[in-house]
Amino acid sequence: MKKILCLFGAVALMLTSCSSDDDKTSSEENVVLLPKTEKYTYATNPQENSIVTYSYDGNKIVSLTYNTGEKTVFTYTENLITKAVYTETYEGAMRIFTTTFTYDNGKLKSSFQVGSANSLNKRRTYTYNANGTISTVTVLINPTTQLETQDSSSTLTLDASGNIVKAEFNDLTTIIEYDTKNNPFRNVLGFTSLLDSDIFDKDVNSVNNIAKVIEKSGAVIEGTTTYTNSYNSDNYLIKSVSGNETYEYTY
């Protein structure tokens, strides 16, 4: 967003001298919105279409509920999300996945997901490196034998706003470009602290909105995905289109 130019002078002078654009920007910076619904449309696979409804206690998210029956309920410790319980019906049976999060001085330290019977548990740890990157290791755990198998590892690079701009997996690299507008969830307490956790059904928990994703294998670009984003008058995302997929938000 543009910085407010009218920083000095009497209030009366500010009101008369600042341009209408600057006044609008000032009001936008003070607007705090929370998404009420997210509508997902998959043009070529309409059976995947869904609507998610979000409920809150102030700026803390209480739950997200899908029109298809799935639901996630959140628990906070102070202003950080420390538990998310996801429920779904699969082949006629209820399945529950509980993810707990730990932090160190406000930074995500680990996540641990426990599933229903016959599903593997999953633990991811985060290490904050001296160069500013974050290393992650994901381990799958057999709930019966407790045998651990490394599933993946990655190195995350963040920009000054805390957006993940690069994720490196062995010889594979994902580069993410963002707009400068407001992610619908940026005002949800604890959202951005979750980094790459997918409990919001998002690839990354960012302040801004994804504009382009570039997938590389070594130096070779394997694929590029672009997003066409639309915003409301307060610069919050209301629609994002990429290929056959569309996300729409109400506030």
Rank of each mutant, 00 (worst) to 15 (best):
V213L: 07
G9Y: 09
S50W: 01
T98D: 10
Y178N: 05
V32D: 09
I210K: 06
L33H: 07
G92H: 07
T82G: 07
T98P: 04
S110L: 06
T149G: 08
T144V: 11
N45Y: 12
K166P: 04
K181R: 11
A160K: 12
G9K: 11
Y227P: 06
K3I: 01
G9R: 11
V62F: 00
L189H: 03
V114T: 14
T149W: 04
V31N: 11
N105A: 12
I4F: 08
I221G: 08
L120C: 04
Y236C: 02
T41D: 11
N79D: 15
T41M: 05
A12G: 15
F185S: 01
T125Y: 07
T225S: 13
K36Y: 09
Y42V: 08
M14T: 15
D201A: 13
P143H: 05
K24N: 11
D179Y: 04
I81R: 04
L172N: 14
V62R: 05
E168I: 08
M1L: 00
Y236M: 02
T75K: 04
Y126D: 05
V11H: 15
V62S: 02
G190P: 02
T25W: 07
D21F: 13
Y76N: 03
Y76S: 01
M14K: 15
L156W: 03
F74L: 01
S242H: 08
E29V: 13
L158A: 08
T53G: 01
S240T: 04
D151E: 12
K83Q: 14
N205Y: 05
S116G: 15
K60T: 00
V188G: 01
L189W: 01
P143C: 05
T225I: 12
A93I: 15
N232F: 03
A93C: 08
K3D: 10
I134T: 08
S154V: 04
S19F: 09
F169Q: 10
I210S: 03
N118K: 14
I238F: 03
